[in-house]
Design a protein around this nucleic acid. Structure first.
Lengths: 208, 208
DNA sequence: CGACCTTTTGAATGAGATCAAACCAAGTGG
DNA sequence: CCACTTGGTTTGATCTCATTCAAAAGGTCG
């Protein structure tokens, strides 16, 4: 039983840092509540968000295999979050079965695939297409966890967070979002996303 | 012994396709000789190169775990290549030991880390910085395999391949490379890269 | 209400894209 | 041996999407 291994519950406020880059994580974490993200910060203040984490996501699994592992990115809270920290020993035992190993490996591949799609987006697509994809990707993640249904869902990212995930500026994200709203495709306001025309949004996400 | 499991040797000419997107790979491959790359093609002819493969690299490991797996990218030969195809059953046996599992997992993480660095580059750095990083990344891969030493090494990518790996156009890559040569940092010509000023190149790669 | 964020809007600028032509080196074949 | 392809690189002129800098306009919360 997972619960038996739980060591401690940590909580953090929105925009607070959870783990710093370069740190050697001491535990393995699961996000219990709220949203978080992994990001790399450049010397000049720019940053790139690598991925978002939703309730149920596990991170710092690397700790289990690589004792000297140091995070090459920082982990931030996007909203108020609570997370559970498990000690490595217990977790290793828990994940020793072939089935668990299998699930970990598959999850790793899923993550890579998502990352690769984002790479294609940023490398080869313009702002609208990137936005459409981000919204649809997040929606399908939420739906897979039963955290969304219908045509609207929680979207706690600020314009700046979106920008840093997509390799854009917050101003340009704002402008593009205004345009998408005015064409009746997508509306994002007050922490929520509303898909106004799914067919068109899908189309933009694949060809634009 | 690995050799005992080998099933067949395949070879392909430069720029030929090795595996198509959407295919269900039947084997697991190791690149024996030459360079290859993974790429995604968009409807309008643009493409994004996801990663390069060098002699010794293994691919389609996913086949082992996911029987219904279909490639979300295409595999191309960059130079003349030869590769070895192993059947899934034998490979599964070969990689069943905990140590082998461990190595596979670590390799998967290494790949993801490389991908994430590229994401930061394309999302947040300008052309010179991306180029510097690509060259240094490839150099260190080559050195790790004993395929390079000193300040110059094989670099079989055309301007267009570099562009598609870095989210640029071949013209812009050409211009940037000319500029780097004229400032005495880096020279790439006739299938070889020459690091003229490593200190400056490192600097460009980290801050630019 | 005022202080503080975040979002929107505007105008000017810029990095890189696009389109097109010239250039170059290595074949090929007459 | 020279004309002619062919595939790739370089160069130039122009255009555009996105950035930058700056200021106004909303929201939110003490």
């Amino acid at each position: 039983m997972v619960r038996a291994r739980r060591r401690s519950v940590i909580s953090a406020k929105a925009h607070q840092i959870i783990l710093r880059k370069g740190e050697a994580p001491t535990h393995i974490y699961t996000l219990h509540d709220g949203w978080a993200y992994r990001a790399v910060h450049l010397d000049d203040g720019r940053r790139q968000i690598l991925s978002f984490a939703l309730p149920g996501d596990v991170f710092c699994l690397e700790t289990m295999r690589l004792p000297e592992y140091r995070l090459p990115y920082a982990m931030h809270a996007l909203t108020q979050v609570t997370l559970c920290a498990f000690d490595v020993g217990g977790m290793r035992e828990l994940l020793s079965s072939p089935e668990a190993q299998f699930r970990v490996a598959v999850e790793c591949q899923r993550q890579s695939a998502l990352l690769e799609r984002r790479l294609v987006d940023i490398g080869r697509r313009r702002a609208v297409g990137r936005l459409a994809r981000l919204v649809l990707d997040l929606e399908s993640l939420l739906k897979a966890r039963g955290l969304a249904s219908g045509e609207d869902f929680d979207f706690p990212l600020r314009r700046e967070d979106v920008a840093d995930a997509l390799g854009l500026t917050s101003e340009h994200v704002s402008r593009t979002l205004v345009a998408m709203k005015s064409t009746g495709v997508l509306d994002v306001h007050q922490g929520r996303a509303y898909i106004l025309d799914r067919e068109q949004l899908d189309h933009i996400a694949t060809v634009e």
